[in-house]
């Protein structure tokens, strides 16, 4: 027995050491990006050369980056608005009223999660193109470019991808919802709508908030859909960043990335504060 003790300790050290390394591995690129954004040199070396905010200045001066940042925020906010409303209503329908179609509807709504994002993007790209061609053939010129040359096409893609996340969160709050609470409200004299407003909605609210914030984060970071569906001449922040870092290692990108991480962190912190991080469901 005594001989076995140090061996177990050693095993434990190796185990915990390995886990620490994995966490370092997971977080390293994010930390490095932040460090690089405050580094005064063109290239990050170890140890860093010095502290500087010049890359932030360069970022805030860059019209294309600032433009894409605001465009991304705009898309994410509008997408969150629609996804949350649609996701909540459809979750209500599927959980409460769908009867024997429940599993089919669930599958349909989760489809964008199961299908590769890039394929969905391609499918939408083709569809928008064919839509324009059909409209032109029908002489309905006013509809040409409805999806391709505006935010609408991009937004639809973002809603398709984010809606399943909202749906999952809210439908699981609804499944966990104790129906006796609604019955109690009804027995006390509340009608259906009052019951929903006064009892159901307040109780599933954390699920809705978590879903909405997750939706915002995902939309803000979405790449493949945006790459193929962005209107002509407009780019979201991830696209702009992608174009930039493909050809250029200039740490302005690090400043952009840091701001993007910060926005995500704020959304996560807000989730944690409002409803607890574990309300996020995948």
């Amino acid at each position: 027995m005594t001989a076995a003790v140090p061996r177990i300790r050693l095993g434990r050290v190796v185990y915990l050491g390995f886990i620490t390394l994995v966490y370092v591995f997971l977080l390293m690129p994010l930390v490095i990006v932040v460090l690089a954004s405050f580094n005064s040199g063109e290239f990050l070396t170890f140890p860093p050369e010095g502290f500087s905010l010049r890359w932030y200045v360069s970022f805030f001066d860059s019209e294309s980056f600032m433009g894409s940042l605001f465009y991304s925020l705009k898309v994410a906010i509008v997408c969150t608005f629609f996804s949350t409303i649609l996701g909540t209503t459809v979750a209500l329908y599927v959980v409460r009223f769908s009867g024997r179609w429940r599993e089919h509807l669930r599958l349909l709504i989760l489809l964008p999660l199961l299908l590769p994002e890039i394929l969905t993007a391609i499918a939408l790209l083709f569809f928008y193109y064919n839509f324009d061609a059909t409209m032109r053939a029908l002489g309905l010129d006013m509809f040409v470019g409805l999806f391709r040359n505006s935010m609408v096409g991009l937004l639809i893609g973002h809603i398709l991808i984010t809606l399943p996340f909202v749906f999952l969160g809210i439908s699981s709050s609804l499944y966990n919802f104790d129906m006796a609470l609604e019955e109690a409200a009804r027995s006390l004299g509340a009608g259906r709508f009052t019951t929903f407003r006064r009892v159901t909605l307040p109780i599933i609210k954390p699920g809705i908030i978590a879903g909405a914030l997750l939706c915002f984060i995902i939309s803000f970071d979405l790449f493949s859909i945006s790459l193929l569906l962005k209107g002509i001449g407009v780019a979201t922040l991830p696209i702009q960043l992608f174009d930039y870092v493909r050809w250029d290692y200039d740490p302005t990108a690090a400043a952009v990335a840091t701001v993007s991480i910060l926005i995500t962190l704020m959304a996560i912190a807000l989730t944690e504060k409002l409803v607890g991080l574990r309300s996020l469901r995948f």
Partner: peptide, 23 residues
């Protein structure tokens, strides 16, 4: 620790790739 596992997931893939490019 849970947040550590989750947060890379919530930061855009381009940003994370860029981190690796720097390294």
């Amino acid at each position: 620790l849970y947040a550590f596992v989750l947060s890379p997931l919530l930061v855009g893939v381009v940003v994370r790739c860029y981190g690796w490019i720097i390294i």
